[in-house]
């Protein structure tokens, strides 16, 4: 039976091919769009054009794409580093030093996992105003530095760590922080990597919170710029496509370079 080409088989392949085509097509479209003018894109031109450098020029000179990219990289980079440090330490604390207080705090933390951002938005905005952090990147970094989901993600994989190794290190006289940084963390590289990808995606793609916090053009991030470009009365399609490609490219590169960890990070589990 197996391996033979039957009629249902053909339909299955046809279905897969159509679905894959629909999935990939927008990527192809934005890549060719990047090299065409708005008029050509509207006309439905699907081949590569010659407008690539012109689009790049407009993006970088008129909309200061270099600064926007720098802003995004700065915010995302600092958020990811801080988030990994703070959340991994918290998860380690929850797993390795079980006491009544830590267990209760963990339960409380997990309870907030399903709270929608909309319910936090207004008080968060008021806190940021109080601290005089409005229109600053620090406001984005500090609020993204502690993520309930990433604490949960770390804990899930930390619980399987052999406790004996930590005990042995203690007997040898290693301090608690040295055990964490020198022994524990290096052996958990793939977990950290998957969490980093999740944190990166969340921060790089965030839109609502930057929209509320950042108010001047010199502070805006890539998502805000793309949104701004597309809301113009006469949208410059070629320029928008270029901006979309530039903002998506880092994620696509990470995806193809580290597919396995990427999927793990996106799904928030180590089972994928």
């Amino acid at each position: 039976m197996k391996g033979k080409i039957s009629i249902p088989r053909i339909f299955i392949y046809l279905f897969l091919i159509v679905a894959s085509f629909l999935s990939i097509f927008p990527f192809f479209w934005m890549t060719t769009g990047m090299t065409n003018s708005a008029v050509d894109i509207v006309r439905g031109k699907m081949t590569f054009g010659t407008m690539f450098f012109e689009n790049i020029r407009i993006l970088f000179s008129e909309y200061d794409m270099a600064l926007v990219l720098f802003n995004s990289i700065k915010v995302t980079g600092l958020t990811v580093v801080l988030c990994l440090l703070i959340c991994s330490m918290a998860a380690y604390g929850f797993v390795m030093y079980k006491s009544k207080i830590t267990q209760r705090l963990y339960a409380l933390t997990m309870l907030t996992m399903m709270i929608p951002f909309a319910a936090l938005m207004i008080p968060l905005f008021q806190i940021i105003v109080q601290f005089k952090l409005l229109n600053s990147h620090f406001a984005l970094i500090i609020t993204g530095a502690s993520s309930v989901f990433i604490i949960f993600f770390f804990r899930q994989s930390f619980v399987t760590y052999p406790f004996e190794i930590i005990q042995a290190a203690r007997v040898d006289g290693a301090g608690e922080f040295r055990i964490f940084f020198k022994i524990f963390a290096p052996s958990m590289k793939s977990t950290f990597f998957a969490a980093a990808i999740y944190a990166f995606m969340t921060s790089w793609n965030s839109y609502m919170w930057p929209l509320i916090v950042l108010q001047t053009n010199d502070k805006r991030t890539t998502t805000l710029l793309i949104s701004y470009l597309s809301s113009a009365y006469v949208p410059q399609y070629g320029v928008i496509m270029t901006a979309i490609v530039i903002s998506t490219l880092p994620i696509i590169i990470i995806f193809f370079a580290f597919q396995k960890q990427f999927v793990q990070g996106m799904l928030g589990s180590l089972k994928a």
């Binding site: 703070i86 604390g93 030093y97 907030t112 502690s146 309930v148």
Partner: peptide
């Protein structure tokens, strides 16, 4: 244990 979770808890208390 409390030291390890302190920073995360302070941030969550403030922002969550």
């Amino acid at each position: 244990g409390l030291i390890f979770i302190a920073v995360a808890m302070i941030l969550l208390a403030l922002f969550m």
